[in-house]
Simulated assay, not measured.
Amino acid sequence: MLGAAAVLPIALPSKSKSFFISGLVPLFPTFALIAHYIVGSQRTMEDLRLTALFGLYSLIPYAAYLVAVYYFSYKLNLLWTLTTVTLVWLFFAFILLVCWTRFHLTSL
């Protein structure tokens, strides 16, 4: 039931002339709200701010993913596009984690 409830707000707009709204719905910060509540209630406000800052940096892998979807959708079929862009996201997420742990955490 929860899966259907999550898919419905994405599937319904995708069938309308405002199909592009389907790209906004998954960005509702459901998990971010949960994560920020947990961090904010169990750690310091400084840790909450640091979590939010990392969240801003986490937009980099997502932006790379979207650019890759746009680019590879011209070159590849749907399955290969989605496979390739998943690898792009994983690569950028890995780079982000390496850089964050190497450069940001050492300055704390």
Results as ranks from 00 to 15, higher is better:
66 L>Y: 06
3 G>H: 03
108 L>K: 15
98 V>N: 08
88 V>C: 10
102 R>K: 10
14 S>W: 09
59 L>F: 06
101 T>E: 08
58 S>T: 06
104 H>F: 10
70 Y>H: 10
46 E>Y: 04
71 Y>E: 01
53 L>V: 02
22 S>V: 02
31 F>Q: 13
25 V>G: 07
78 L>A: 15
11 A>L: 13
81 T>Y: 10
7 V>Y: 08
9 P>I: 03
87 L>F: 11
36 H>F: 14
105 L>K: 12
105 L>E: 11
17 K>M: 14
43 R>F: 13
72 F>G: 02
16 S>L: 14
14 S>V: 05
54 F>D: 01
36 H>S: 07
79 L>G: 06
51 T>H: 08
97 L>V: 11
58 S>M: 11
32 A>M: 02
85 V>W: 00
65 Y>E: 03
66 L>W: 03
35 A>W: 09
81 T>P: 08
32 A>N: 04
26 P>I: 01
92 F>G: 06
33 L>E: 04
55 G>K: 07
69 V>D: 08
6 A>G: 08
99 C>A: 13
50 L>V: 12
2 L>F: 08
97 L>G: 13
33 L>T: 11
100 W>C: 05
34 I>L: 15
57 Y>R: 01
70 Y>E: 07
100 W>N: 05
89 W>H: 14
67 V>Y: 09
39 V>K: 14
65 Y>L: 15
8 L>C: 08
63 A>V: 01
57 Y>K: 01
68 A>N: 11
98 V>S: 07
42 Q>N: 14
56 L>H: 00
73 S>Y: 09
64 A>G: 05
17 K>Q: 15
86 T>S: 11
24 L>K: 00
106 T>V: 13
26 P>C: 01
18 S>P: 03
23 G>F: 09
87 L>E: 01
11 A>T: 04
19 F>P: 00
73 S>P: 07
40 G>D: 05
105 L>T: 06
63 A>N: 00
83 T>Y: 12
36 H>G: 09
11 A>W: 06
21 I>H: 04
99 C>T: 10
97 L>I: 11
71 Y>D: 00
52 A>I: 10
11 A>Q: 03
48 L>K: 15
24 L>Q: 00
59 L>R: 00
21 I>F: 10
93 A>K: 12
48 L>I: 14
71 Y>A: 06
94 F>D: 02
25 V>Y: 09
80 W>M: 08
31 F>T: 15
14 S>N: 06
77 N>I: 13
21 I>K: 05
60 I>R: 04
87 L>W: 03
49 R>L: 12
20 F>D: 02
29 P>I: 10
16 S>F: 09
27 L>V: 08
73 S>W: 09
79 L>R: 05
85 V>D: 01
72 F>T: 07
17 K>W: 14
101 T>W: 02
44 T>M: 04
7 V>L: 15
8 L>K: 04
89 W>S: 08
108 L>H: 14
43 R>C: 05
106 T>A: 07
62 Y>T: 12
30 T>R: 07
95 I>G: 02
46 E>A: 12
12 L>Q: 01
44 T>P: 03
68 A>M: 13
101 T>F: 07
31 F>D: 10
69 V>C: 15
85 V>H: 00
79 L>I: 05
67 V>C: 11
60 I>F: 14
48 L>R: 15
107 S>T: 12
57 Y>T: 01
43 R>G: 00
87 L>Y: 03
107 S>K: 13
